[in-house]
């Protein structure tokens, strides 16, 4: 019992692995947080309980995501996750982006292979969020909004 408490504390003192330099960099200096006047797809994604709120915009030409951006507010995880997603999917075909979104969702909610995690590039650092059920929705917001947008099309 005492040992459990101690080991938990030790883990804690090392810090939550997800407040990572990569994540804070995407949160403070996002590459894709801006307006996108020539977007042809747009959807708002909200986590009403935490107040995370983003508007995701994509410019899609012949099934290829040629550009994308988001605007909004929320916690570091929701914002950085959306930014990393756009890093990953811009320049990809919609189907390929959906496949990656599926891997991301399985990573957060279940398990994926190491190869699959590498496919997610920087977004793979969010793997440990699966241990924090309260934050899963934050990490999923951008990806869920992307899926909703493409499926509604």
């Amino acid at each position: 019992m005492q040992n459990n408490v101690q080991s938990r504390t030790q883990n804690k003192i090392q810090g939550n692995p997800f407040y990572h330099e990569i994540l804070t960099e995407h949160n403070l200096h996002p590459y894709h947080k801006h307006a996108l006047p020539d977007a042809n797809l747009e959807l708002e994604g909200v986590n009403p309980n935490c107040g995370d709120d983003i508007v995701l915009r994509l410019k899609v030409e012949e099934d290829v995501i040629v550009d994308g951006a988001y605007e909004g507010d929320g916690c570091a995880i929701s914002q950085a996750s959306a930014d990393m997603m756009l890093d990953l999917i811009i320049g990809k075909k919609k189907d390929e982006a959906l496949r990656l979104a599926d891997i991301f969702s399985r990573m957060i909610k279940d398990k994926i292979t190491e190869e699959e995690r590498e496919e997610l590039e920087e977004a793979g650092i969010l793997q440990d969020i699966s241990h924090m059920p309260m934050r899963v929705k934050c990490a999923m917001l951008g990806w869920r909004t992307f899926r909703g947008m493409v499926e509604a099309e």
């Binding site: 804690k12 003192i13 810090g15 939550n16 407040y19 935490c50 107040g51 916690c75 570091a76 995880i77």
Partner: peptide, 22 residues
Amino acid sequence: GVHPHDVAAILDESRICVRAGH
């Protein structure tokens, strides 16, 4: 500059329990 959920999560690393949200 910091969302309350991030505040609470970082405080929790040091086992400090606070509420965040509305």
